[in-house]
Design a protein around this nucleic acid. Structure first.
Lengths: 342, 342
DNA sequence: TTGTAAGCGTTATCAT
DNA sequence: ATGATAACGCTTACAA
């Protein structure tokens, strides 16, 4: 026996039983009318629709999902949303997911370590999820993957059989480094960022070294470690610029760091780019507007998110082809901070 | 009869029935152990936990939510995520929601009109939701409100019995205007933004006019309409600056518009702030780094989101006190773009 | 302390 | 074309 009383105050709204009763049909018929899953006579159809309308009935997502065995929802895990990078990515993701009729659940890790439970909780609410960068431990992902949860990684090393997207860090880093070393002829460098913290940064750092080697310039042994924040970049830059052999160019792992570096240079009375060149990554709005325009690398961030959503959709749809790993192209944006361009 | 077969390939993982069988107890006992909702003997407790561990069991959110009659999830509807404003807000919201043990579902409207269905779908997945600015039609909100869905509005006129938060647009706008008119002595103004599109802008515009009137300065009849994008601001500024009586100060509804305006001024060979003063809203990163630092208004955006989450939580928890309407204070950030400060 | 069984709101498979 | 009814996976009275 199902409850047919429509107590005022039951937040859920009407149920399919109430609609059925109101229309004088069975719940099966109501479902058929609404889902269009089997032929229904025109007259009953009208009656059902009228009842639906009258009661303001909307099927319960919970009931439906339980019966269908799917959530029609995707998850996404990211570290943060400050800075346009992740925000744009999430937006690209949401846009495609919405097109595909799926809701999006977000989970921000804020750099916390104890994310395991939150990720597992998220996993129980979605049909698949996207994981960005260094947000989730590898073993957790392997676990999820093993349980059959469709997974797409972004800006992160591949995991198990999961698909992955990233931007071409190596290529852009080499091109950038080459530009600085060859076109501008700089001979001493420092790299600001934390390769441990970010897979993207790790790739940029490696290619930076390769690029320098290829250009016959001595590469630093270690990056000057700092996190993706302006203040952190400022401090790292102060440290680098105070060395006895001051670097002629600072290659920074993202624009925030680079903007902090520019500030540090100013504080030390150094001119950018005359005394020291500075470059970043991401092409944030401030890069375009900052004092000497900031030379940087533009990434198709929105497309990253869109690709992830589409790939996830395919996997959830049953696609069992081998894991795909896509690398999207980047674009070097030359501005004044790396030196004058004739 | 419930399915006890643990077919490989069923993505859902183990069910409570399998755990019960494995531990040789009833599903009720399993539930009790996991929820800690009633005393269980130490030995059975151990057996259950062992079974849970062995099977890697995690309760299905769907089953649980259906039984409990709650989603343990909150929704948030925003227009966009470009620009730090909404991103920060969402972040503040998510952070608190996570603390309260709730997931967050997002819905970006991208300025589309046909949002009704998406919002209703969202409503069927959450226990309550937050609605930002002009994303959702009033009648839809009234509908939701009428059905008992807890609602909190942000940066938007109040709706029905819903709680609301916003920042103090009027106060900051008056102070800003007064600063320009009195401290700097400017006598001709233009306001760039679209009061139709954004409730925040509408308030800023109104208080801008009041501020001018109070200072004894003639106020423009209409804002120069433009959307919240740099390019749109640039075009609006070009239009305003080409007038016969060129305005001495451009008050812009946000920083993107203001940065576009600065660009427009440059294009016309005008100096900021010597020939024309420009101000914005939001204090985005680029405002700090742009050519003449941009005078702007800083808002406690993150707190906006946090407040909304907490209020929502209280409502969902059964709080029936009268609707609250909070206004958070803002801060004027004076930089060079509005003129020299001695 | 533990088990039985009735919901929760759908969808989908049988019959009819 | 329509109606019973069994899942779906859980929580929670109610019994024992």
């Amino acid at each position: 026996m199902k409850a047919l009383t429509s107590d005022a105050g039951d937040r859920g709204g009407a149920t399919i039983y109430q609609v059925a009763q109101h229309a004088g049909v069975s719940i099966a018929t109501v479902s058929r009318v609404l889902r269009g899953t089997a032929p229904v006579s025109e007259t009953t159809r009208a009656r059902v629709l009228a009842a639906v309308d009258h009661l303001g009935y909307r099927p319960s997502r919970l009931g439906r999902s339980l019966a269908e065995g799917r959530h029609a929802a995707y998850g996404i895990v990211f570290p943060d949303l400050s800075g346009p990078y992740f925000a744009e990515l999430v937006l690209g993701y949401e846009e495609v997911a919405a097109e595909l009729g799926c809701s999006v659940l977000i989970l921000a890790t804020h750099g916390r370590a104890a994310v395991r439970d939150k990720v597992l909780d998220l996993a129980s609410r979605v049909d698949g999820m996207v994981v960005l960068a260094r947000t989730v431990e590898d073993d957790v992902l392997a676990d999820l993957n093993g349980k059959g949860m469709p997974l797409v990684t972004v800006a992160r090393p591949a995991v198990g059989g999961a698909d992955g997207v990233r931007t071409d860090n190596a290529e852009s880093s080499r091109r950038l480094t080459e530009h600085l070393a060859v076109a501008h002829g700089y001979r001493s460098f420092a790299f600001l960022g934390d390769a441990q913290q970010s897979p993207d940064t790790a790739q940029r750092w490696e290619a930076f070294r390769e690029g320098l080697r290829a250009a016959g310039v001595a590469a630093p042994r270690q990056p000057v470690r700092c996190s993706f924040e302006e203040e952190s970049g400022r401090l790292a830059a102060l440290q680098a610029l105070r060395r006895a052999r001051r670097p002629r160019a600072l290659v920074c792992a993202n624009d925030e760091i680079a903007l902090g570096a520019v500030r540090a240079a100013e504080e030390l009375g150094l001119r950018v780019p005359e005394d020291v060149a500075v470059t970043g990554w991401d092409d944030v709005m401030a890069a375009r507007h900052s004092r000497p325009g900031l030379t940087t690398v533009r990434q198709p961030v929105r497309r990253l998110g869109a690709w992830a959503a589409r790939r996830l959709h395919a996997r959830i749809g049953g696609d069992t082809s081998p894991a795909e790993h896509v690398v999207l192209p980047t674009e070097l944006v030359l501005r004044r901070s790396c030196g004058e361009h004739p």
